[in-house]
Amino acid sequence: MEYILEVFLDDYRLAKLKGTPVEANIEAVFGGELKVVRVKVGEEVKNDILKAFETARIDSRACITDTPVAFKRALFEEIVNQKSLGEEVVKAVLANIDKIKELAAKEAEYLPAPEIETE
């Protein structure tokens, strides 16, 4: 079975992918309001991710979700580095798992809230 890692793209990330072969794979979802690229992985890599991050889970779309933000950032950077959406980008990220876990541990304590009015 194939599992999917979604990477959502804001303007900064879209600019980084401009002109790369990945650009052709950018998809617009939810009425065009969100841009996303998808990395597909097999059973083994899926298991490595679930093992690495306690919060990670598989949702109803076979997407691997609830991974730390640090992992998602590293994944995006690796996509830019390798200009690819192949499974090898995830393997490269997992090769540095200790560093990501360190960052993830910090982010489990604190994530900055967006500056929007809440009252």
């Binding site: 959502f8 969100l34 949702d59 109803s60 997407c63 979700t65 609830d66 933000v69 967006p114």
Partner: peptide, 15 residues
């Protein structure tokens, strides 16, 4: 286009 709580959590976590 399926939506899930997990998908939204991912967006929220990334701000």
């Amino acid at each position: 286009q399926k939506l899930s709580g997990s998908l939204i959590r991912g967006l929220v976590a990334e701000g």
